[in-house]
Design a protein around this nucleic acid. Structure first.
Length: 154
DNA sequence: GCCAACGTTGGC
DNA sequence: GCCAACGTTGGC
């Protein structure tokens, strides 16, 4: 299977790339948007992920991760004590899924959203055109371009 | 912290 | 099935 590329958003106050470094790998729990969920359900082991910090100034791509486990039910939806508990979901018919990702790289310098918007090859990125989607597909060309940006800023 | 844009819910 | 009301996301 051909490798796919994605961008996943996290609020650094909730779970930053430094948290991912500390943990090594993590469950991507708490996604409660169908489009984002559907994207996670398309992921395969080995797919590459851009790690994005939202709700910081400026919002930015801060590094890379890799899918290490394909989608399975997000257990937080069954946990009444969790913020992500969903009363309408059940173990027999789980509504929400998650994947596991592992840390790959933290960029020396963050790639800010405004810089991304300035790049002609990136004008079609979902990130630029739909600011709400927290798990989104990225073209290989876009992924490579952002990696190139991260290297050229060293 | 504000609020525009977007997604979801639920009454009809 | 429409759409108003509501809730959430995320840039600023």
């Amino acid at each position: 299977m051909k490798k796919s590329y994605w961008l996943m958003k996290s609020e650094p106050d909730v779970y930053s790339i430094d948290d991912l470094i500390a943990d090594g790998r993590t469950h991507w729990d708490g996604v409660r948007n169908y489009q984002a969920r559907n994207n996670m359900m398309k992921m395969a082991v080995g797919d590459e992920v851009l790690y994005y910090h939202s709700r910081q100034v400026p919002p930015a791509v801060v590094g890379r991760a890799r899918v290490v486990k394909e989608s399975y039910p997000d257990f937080t939806q069954f946990d009444k004590t969790s913020n992500y508990y969903d009363v309408r979901s059940s173990e027999e018919d789980p509504r929400w899924h998650m994947v596991d990702v592992e840390f790959v790289q933290k960029f020396e310098t963050e790639i800010g959203l405004t810089e991304i918007k300035d790049q002609q090859p990136l004008v079609s990125m979902v990130l630029v055109n739909n600011s709400r989607l927290s798990v989104q597909p990225v073209l290989k060309e876009e992924f490579d371009w952002i990696l190139k940006m991260s290297r050229s800023k060293l």
